[in-house]
Amino acid sequence: MRALIVDDSPVMRKVVERALRQAGLDFAEVLQAGNGIEALDVLRSNPSPDIIVSDINMPGMDGLQFLEQRRVENLAPGVPVIMITTESSAPLVHRAIAAGARGYICKPFTPEQIRARIIPLLVRSIAAS
């Protein structure tokens, strides 16, 4: 399995990667990007990941713009995207879901919360493919 983690904070990328690995998920590769622009480049130049975990509030291109551009370019269609962010307001959650996010986790989070949200999405995604 492969994951793409998008966050402008290197520490949060490590924290999410650690949570994914602690969940017992066998990721052969965890790709990383510091904002939406880098994430689009990763998707254009690599095989599709099995899951994308993205922050919203990032400089350059934020997580919502990344989702919208991903849809325009039809990059990694069908790959579930989970948003992990400090922004928890309902309008923002609705915008993220409308832009294609399949789940939403608020920071701060525990590894258990990551596991509870991501494993069901991965199982469905792998079964569908």
Binding site: N57, T85, T86, E87, S88, S89, C106, K107, P108
Partner: peptide
């Protein structure tokens, strides 16, 4: 700081 601000905001 970002998370504290976010938790305060909510």
């Amino acid at each position: 700081c970002n998370m504290i601000a976010g938790c305060w905001k909510k």
